[in-house]
């Protein structure tokens, strides 16, 4: 099924052009093709379904509003990820602000802090995937973004560099340090990372 989706995505040039021309049916199909990808990208970024859904929907609203401004349909994928990433970053900033303004402190922040302090204790009863998602979420945003794009979105370093507007070497370096940090977290967790 995913293979079919990927084929459809790679052949979505005509859909993009129709959507640019105002064909909402084509736009609907485009959303159907990309919604899951963007949702999962956002989900891995936040490890939170509601936030991921919100970011994904906002992304597609912007896409709807601005798709006619997209100059080259080949650039659609990078453009889409840029929009999604901007919304992710915006949401991140908003959450950080809320944490600062919170009188009693955010429970989530406290949880993350405690997890960072004693991962063994906190991750004891977690499912493997949940643990991975939470660990991924704890990585610095730059490293996390590259890691998600490379590991889960299957993008080339060139494409990642294009989306993030950085050099390929920077993307590789961020990925490397991201993987090392993740490995360390796993080693400290009950999952007991074994080679």
């Amino acid at each position: 099924m995913e293979v079919l989706e990927n084929i459809a995505i790679s052949h979505s040039k005509s859909l993009i052009e129709k959507a640019q021309g105002g064909d909402e049916h084509a736009y609907g199909k485009l959303v159907g093709l990309w919604f899951k990808r963007i949702y999962n990208f956002s989900l891995k970024y936040f490890a939170d379904h509601d936030l991921a859904m919100e970011v994904t929907q906002r992304t597609f609203i912007v896409v709807y509003q601005k798709i006619s401004h997209l100059k080259a349909s080949e650039q659609f994928q990078y453009w889409l990820y840029k929009i999604a990433l901007n919304h992710c970053r915006e949401e991140d900033r908003r959450r950080k602000r809320n944490r600062w303004f919170s009188i009693f402190g955010d429970d989530e922040v406290a949880n993350i802090a405690s997890k960072a302090g004693n991962p063994e204790k906190e991750y004891g009863n977690k499912e493997k995937t949940e643990m991975l998602a939470e660990m991924l979420n704890q990585l610095p945003a730059d490293q996390k973004t590259v890691l998600i794009m490379k590991e889960y979105e299957g993008m080339k370093f060139r494409e990642i560099a294009e989306v993030l507007n950085i050099s390929e070497n920077t993307a590789k370096s961020r990925l490397y340090y991201g993987l090392k940090a993740l490995k360390k977290m796993l080693e400290n967790s009950e999952l007991n990372y074994k080679i």
Binding site: K18, A19, Q20, G21, G22, D23, E24, H25, A26, Y27, Y64, Q65, K66, I67, S68, H69
Partner: peptide, 9 residues
């Protein structure tokens, strides 16, 4: 299903 002739956005 807006008409394709209309401008999107």
């Amino acid at each position: 299903n807006r008409s394709a002739t209309k401008k999107s956005g």
